[in-house]
């Protein structure tokens, strides 16, 4: 197998807070090949966005390695990391706050071209026009400001801005969560079409499981800074093994009538990621918790179709 495009090893990001250390991302590892989409799912506060940002060094990671094309980019200095950002881009969740309101569409999109040394204005404009065509933005919007655009178009600007440097890898941080279902479907189709044409690798972060399943090849489920289960998207949805994954999947409201489902309704809320107790972090809400769960943290390992971190499968 070819070497993965991106290899994240034992990534850690801790934040110091007044109340103690917040373990936002704690020992997360995964890899991503060209043209592949990894869906990162979990509830708010589980560390999915922090993971995406730590990979791009928008947050400096506390520990671990991020190999991009075989090189550990966490050891790059500031100038070198700027160079690598051409190949690694991000699309943010909120198209309303991620665009500078005082720049028009052309300026917003061409900004990164100027930063990366495309001097000729004519060349920049030609490239902006080309990329607008690709993401489905009408040319007449070149001079429009963000407040004149609807949510779907704004998100297209965000996508155009990420794509203009021809990146290899893009972090999609909840790119469709702020959009209505019809617009959401349009953007999802666009992202998948772009991937087929240009072979982008996506890290697709979302809390919407139906969306993640639709777009991802593989899925990683996060809970309190840890990956608790990961595997092929279809297999994971068909045979979830971790009790948290099971609960998560059974909580998705399905738009169909007369579907009888066994629901696993979790009690309680996600606990605070500040100084989490030893052992498995899910055990407080887990319907299958055992004494060993309080003592030992389960490691992620291959069980059947997926990789699971759970003591239930210790004997398999």
């Amino acid at each position: 197998m070819a070497e993965p495009l991106l290899n994240v090893c034992n990534l850690k990001k801790y934040f110091k807070t007044r109340d103690g250390i917040l373990y936002a991302v704690d020992d997360v590892s995964f890899s991503l090949r060209e043209g592949e989409t990894l869906g990162l799912v979990g509830e708010s506060g589980c560390g999915k966005s922090t993971t995406g940002r730590a990979i791009l060094r928008l947050h400096e990671p506390t520990g671990g390695q991020v190999y991009f094309r075989g090189e550990d980019i966490l050891r790059y200095n500031k100038t070198k990391i700027k160079g690598i950002r051409r190949d690694m881009q991000i699309v943010f969740q909120d198209p309303y706050s991620s665009l500078n309101p005082r720049m028009n569409v052309q300026q917003l999109i061409e900004n990164s071209l100027s930063i990366n040394g495309v001097r000729s204005a004519a060349q920049r404009l030609a490239r902006v026009r080309e990329i607008m065509e690709i993401v489905g933005l009408e040319q007449r919007l070149l001079g429009a400001y963000p407040h004149e655009l609807d949510g779907g178009r704004r998100q297209r600007v965000g996508i155009a801005r990420a794509l203009i440097l021809n990146p290899k890898f893009i972090v999609m941080d909840e790119p469709v969560s702020a959009l209505d279902v019809c617009i959401q479907a349009q953007i999802l189709n666009l992202l998948m079409d772009l991937q087929r044409r240009y072979g982008y690798a996506y890290l697709f972060i979302s809390h919407n499981l139906s969306v993640v399943k639709h777009i991802s090849d593989r899925i990683a489920v996060m809970y309190l800074g840890k990956i608790v289960e990961t595997g092929d998207s279809r297999l994971l949805f068909a045979h979830p093994q971790h009790p948290y994954t099971k609960a998560l999947l059974s909580s998705i409201p399905i738009p169909k009538v007369g579907v009888e489902r066994k629901r696993v309704i979790l009690t309680g809320d996600v606990p605070s990621p500040i100084d989490p107790p030893p052992g498995c972090r899910f055990r407080g809400r887990c319907p299958n918790a055992m004494p060993v769960c309080a003592q030992q943290e389960p490691a992620l390992r291959q069980v059947g179709d997926t990789c699971v971190a759970c003591h239930l499968y210790d004997n398999e």
Binding site: D150, C182, I183, A185, L188, V211, H214
Partner: peptide
């Protein structure tokens, strides 16, 4: 049609063209 289904495989979603 715009909602991705969790039990059926779809390549692309059938979308309503245009905007509200």
């Amino acid at each position: 049609n715009s909602i991705p289904s969790i039990d059926v495989e779809q390549k692309t979603l059938e979308v309503i063209e245009g905007l509200t």
